[in-house]
């Protein structure tokens, strides 16, 4: 199932507690899943009737960023959950970030 998202769009896992926000996204239709099921743009669509698909679980952690190899999309996890994000079936990779000291 295809969808369009932009920076600031919120994404909800259909079968897990995972919540994401889009930091950067390509224009046009994309196929985005969380936990192997189409990502939801609205939390009210969650039903919990299915499980996280095999290979799409393992836990997304709050504050972590997820990116594709091409760097076309970046998601930030705002609520932890089992389901991991994937673009066109490919799991997104955890983005390396060196934390900076709190300056304010």
């Amino acid at each position: 199932m295809s969808m369009t998202v932009k920076a600031g769009s919120r994404l909800f896992g259909a079968t897990s507690t995972t919540e994401m926000i889009v930091v950067r996204a390509p224009a046009g239709e994309i196929e985005l899943t969380i936990g192997g099921h189409p990502a939801l743009l609205d939390a009210s669509g969650r039903d919990g009737s299915t499980d996280v698909a095999e290979g799409h679980g393992g836990g997304a952690a709050m504050g972590k960023r997820y990116v594709d190899e091409a760097g076309s999309i970046e998601l930030l996890c705002t609520k932890a959950g089992d389901g991991l994000p994937a673009l066109a079936g490919e799991l997104l990779a955890l983005k390396d970030a060196k934390p900076l000291p709190a300056s304010d």
Binding site: A7, G8, R10, I21, V23, M62, T78, K79
Partner: peptide, 14 residues
């Protein structure tokens, strides 16, 4: 991104 997104992130995460 917009600061309204920060509000939604705070509601989601905290």
């Amino acid at each position: 991104m917009h600061l309204a997104s920060l509000v939604e992130m705070v509601e989601s995460g905290f």
